[in-house]
């Protein structure tokens, strides 16, 4: 549905994104995950045809967003990061206006308006002036205008930012629903959001894509056996040096939780130390109360991929 090749964009001399490639299949929810200034908004502005890339191409449903801009734009619904709305219009007045701009007939707008107001829970605020709405409700109006014309592609730039937790949950449910028959591209820097919503994640940092996979694979790929959590019955002062002395162990942290001593052992990549550890523990006459592999949380993956220091 969306095909981006070699996207590069310069603001003046500085590249905001460099050689970004990705594809989105029909009906897929793709998440752009990245820290502030990574280039998420820049990418979305290019996909939606708001500005052309310095280099590279994007096609939507086969239409080039620069060369066949109008055709491409017919297929897009967009929620910009800042949720720009005409504050002096009423909610329905605004939605009707946006519907007309998207080429809908007055009749189509009328029926669709009822649905959209319902889906976005704007029922009580139909006649309210947008300027008088709270941030969360403006966000809903923003989503409503993005979906009113039932676009094939929905581009949402940080759709859950700045709204309260209850509305965040609601908004996520809404996006999940929309993602059933629409292609959705969303950006966020909230990690759990990505694992909750997205079929696939692109991690973008400093304008480059650093990882691309399903949230599950991403977590598993980096999980491995190199990180163990062990609970050992025995004096910590003795246990700790022994664990640290094992070849291939990089780091050991110790937590004493009411007499339950838990050690987190970080081994060198790919090393499986489970057997070594259990034998050592038994050999020293301590008791092995628990041993498990710990996956990296998406949070850690994110940090590992976007910061240059080793974890």
């Amino acid at each position: 549905m969306i095909q981006a090749e070699g996207l590069t964009h310069y603001y003046g001399p500085y590249p905001a994104i460099q050689d970004v490639n990705f594809g989105v299949r029909k009906g897929e929810i793709l998440g752009f995950l990245g820290p502030n200034g990574a280039g998420k908004t820049t990418t979305m502005r290019i996909i939606t045809g708001f500005m052309p890339p310095t280099r590279g191409t994007v096609t939507l449903d086969g239409y080039d967003v620069v060369e066949q801009s109008l055709e491409a734009r017919r297929r897009v619904g967009y929620l910009p990061e800042t949720v720009p709305l005409y504050t002096d219009m009423s909610v329905t007045g605004y939605l009707k206006y946006m519907g007309t701009l998207r080429g809908m007939s007055p009749k189509a707008i009328k029926t669709r308006l009822v649905e959209v107001v319902d889906v976005c829970r704007l029922g009580d605020y139909r006649k309210t002036q947008i300027g008088k709405l709270s941030k969360g409700f403006r966000q809903r109006v923003g989503i409503a205008q993005a979906i009113i014309h039932e676009p094939q592609v929905l581009v949402l730039d940080e759709p859950t930012i700045g709204i309260d937790p209850i509305q965040v949950v609601e908004t996520r449910r809404l996006i999940k629903d929309l993602g059933r028959d629409q292609t959705v591209v969303l950006s966020t820097h909230i990690l759990p959001e990505v694992s909750m919503l997205c079929d696939r994640v692109l991690i973008i940092n400093e304008g480059r894509i650093v990882a691309e996979d399903t949230p599950k694979n991403l977590a598993e790929g980096l999980q491995g056996v190199d990180r163990l959590e062990v609970e050992i019955g025995g004096p910590a002062a003795e246990v700790l040096p022994v664990l640290k002395g094992i070849r291939g162990v990089n780091e050991v942290t110790h937590v004493n939780n009411d007499g339950r001593h838990t050690y987190t052992i970080q081994a060198q990549a790919g090393q499986d130390l489970r057997d070594t550890i259990s034998q050592l523990v038994i050999g020293n006459g301590w008791s092995l109360r628990g041993l498990q592999m710990v996956g990296m949380s998406l949070e850690e993956i994110f940090l590992r991929l976007t910061t240059h220091e080793e974890l």
Partner: peptide
């Protein structure tokens, strides 16, 4: 200024 141009120019309007 308000950024509403972003939605105006991404709508299929000439």
């Amino acid at each position: 200024k308000l950024g509403t141009i972003e939605l105006l120019l991404t709508s299929p309007v000439r």
